[in-house]
Amino acid sequence: MAILEVKDLTVNFGGLVAVNNFKLNLEKNELVGLIGPNGAGKTTVFNLLTGNHEPTSGEILLDGKSIVKKKPYHIVDMGIGRTFQNIRLFGNLTVLDNIKIAHNGSMDYTFLDGILRLPKYWKEESEANKECLALLSVFDLDGYAYTLASNLPYGQQRKLEIARALATKPKVLLLDEPAAGMNPQETSELMETIQSVKSTFDIAILLIEHDMNLVMGICERIICIDYGKIIAEGLPDEIKKNPEVIKAYLGE
């Protein structure tokens, strides 16, 4: 059974149909790419999946449960993590704190435990520290644990955002243009990171990207949308040759 199932998803902003009958079946441990020209509605699809927008019609099922009309933080708890096109880190906090905030859902000590520093606080905080540092070491960021997030180099900030999304223990990870602004070497590093994330954490990934090397290189399946509609879906090689995709997006 598909872990994420999207049926006839449509959203209107005033008279504009931003997403029109979008369909998706994301299997467990699958990596799917979402491409299309600027303004095609890719990020809007992400915002619908994470609850930032409410769909006009359609259904989104995560593990068989509907997530339509749920609050963003509730959807995170149910298992969808995301990154942003323009990096949104907690800049004035340390790298470790960035991860620990995302780890909040896995801790459940109360206000009283926290203020009086009861044993539960110590136990959960030290566990969280350990887990978060382990997660950082997967991304080679453990050396930066006590650096302010805004002081990290650009490529590391991108990695940290992915790590932070993973700290919420998602079943589905949505990556919005992870390679934006990266040079070719950083991009190829990122490809390896995404591959290893997929296998280590055993999750499904949906990815928006304009870098065709990356998309064609790692995606198992690609969906191309234009004006909110799916115009093609298939394996990378099929997409490359699809006349509609070439016309709308890839170019001659």
């Binding site: 930032n52 949104r88 800049g91 999304a165 700290a167």
Partner: peptide, 23 residues
């Protein structure tokens, strides 16, 4: 504490805080 970190994360970036599960 974790509650304080959640409160500070809202100062830093509210949209990002919601996207990592902060109510």
């Amino acid at each position: 504490s974790r509650h304080g970190r959640a409160i500070i994360s809202l100062r830093e970036n509210e949209i990002a805080a919601e996207s990592v599960g902060i109510n």
